Simulated assay, not measured.
Amino acid sequence: MGERVGIVGVGLMGQAFVHHLLESGFEVQGYDISERSMAKLHERGGTPVESPAAAARGARWLITSLPNSDIVREVVLGSNGVAEGAARGLIVADTSTSRPEDSEKLGTELAKRGIRFLDACVSGTSAMAWKKDLIVIAGGTAEDFEAARPAFAGFSRAAYHMGPVGSGALTKLIINLILFGNRLALAEGLVLGMKAGVAGESLLRVLQDGACSSKTMIDKGPKMLKGDYTPEGQVKISLKDARLALEQGTRLGAPMLVASLWAQLQQAAYQQGLADMDSVAFIEVLRALAGLEKRV
């Protein structure tokens, strides 16, 4: 039998983690508040358990994949939380997009209990996660990072150590900030083409092959063009991430022009009922401003 990994949060990303970890020979035990997600975990060959504490018992590594750092804190330190089931030396790797200061605080508190912590954010969509095309960006001690490498290799194509706890979360927000700009520019260009009557598929093909090409154009361009907002991420999560980035800009005194505009567009999409759709559904806000018909 392989080494045991616990996971709390088996939603869009977590299911892909489970799949690849099992394929890599790990035992996986997991918990989620969603009965449907727990059923999928069982179907994939993982072991559903009754609480975050149970997910930690007997595991060498515990992965959290959750909506925000407040939920991570409750799952780890709350009643029946990870800390209650953890043996000394357990490595908790939080793959959520969290507030860096929250990660630092949690890491300090866990260290007092003999539990090791990495803010091990991942970069990539859930579709990329299923292809094992994610990277891990981790903050923590070099020793803990090296000890977690086998687990990271189980569900990602590369892992990077960025510095102390909190640096992984900050780096993820920087990645997201640049991604915001890529997606915004692509959507704006596509809407201009739509308004002008340019053939969408031809335009996207040229953009993907031109000097402006990016992963965003390959992964998200077709979704924007077709109005396919099947979630690989979600508007509500993208809005949360944008607000986290803006917080860091305020805290550090850095300009956040793109993040500010992105947050407003995601807020508009959220208010238009698109919260649970893929984050690129914000292109509908731009289409409306251009006087184009609604697609959702």
Score class of each variant (00 low, 15 high):
G25Q: 12
E50L: 08
R157P: 07
V82P: 07
G2I: 13
L261E: 07
E84R: 11
L179R: 04
L289E: 06
D133W: 01
P48N: 05
Y229T: 09
L286F: 11
G107F: 06
Q29E: 13
E84K: 05
Q266V: 03
F26Y: 12
G227T: 03
S202C: 03
G221V: 02
L261Q: 08
Q29V: 14
E104S: 06
A245L: 12
R243G: 01
F26A: 13
L66F: 13
A148M: 13
S65K: 07
V10M: 09
K240W: 04
A211E: 02
S238E: 10
M38T: 07
G124F: 01
I33D: 05
Q15D: 08
A263W: 03
Q272V: 04
T230R: 11
M256R: 06
L207N: 02
A263D: 12
M162R: 06
E201Y: 01
K132S: 02
L12F: 10
Y270H: 15
L184W: 09
L203W: 04
P52T: 05
S167D: 11
R157S: 11
K195L: 04
L186A: 12
E84L: 11
S69L: 01
M38G: 00
Q208I: 00
L207K: 05
A159L: 03
I63W: 13
E23K: 13
A290F: 12
D209E: 10
D278N: 08
N68T: 08
A147C: 09
D241F: 00
L207V: 15
Q267H: 10
D70Q: 15
K240R: 14
L179F: 11
E23P: 00
L41V: 14
V296W: 12
L186I: 07
L22R: 09
L186G: 02
T125P: 02
Q15C: 10
E146H: 11
G273V: 05
P231N: 05
K294W: 10
R88S: 14
T64G: 12
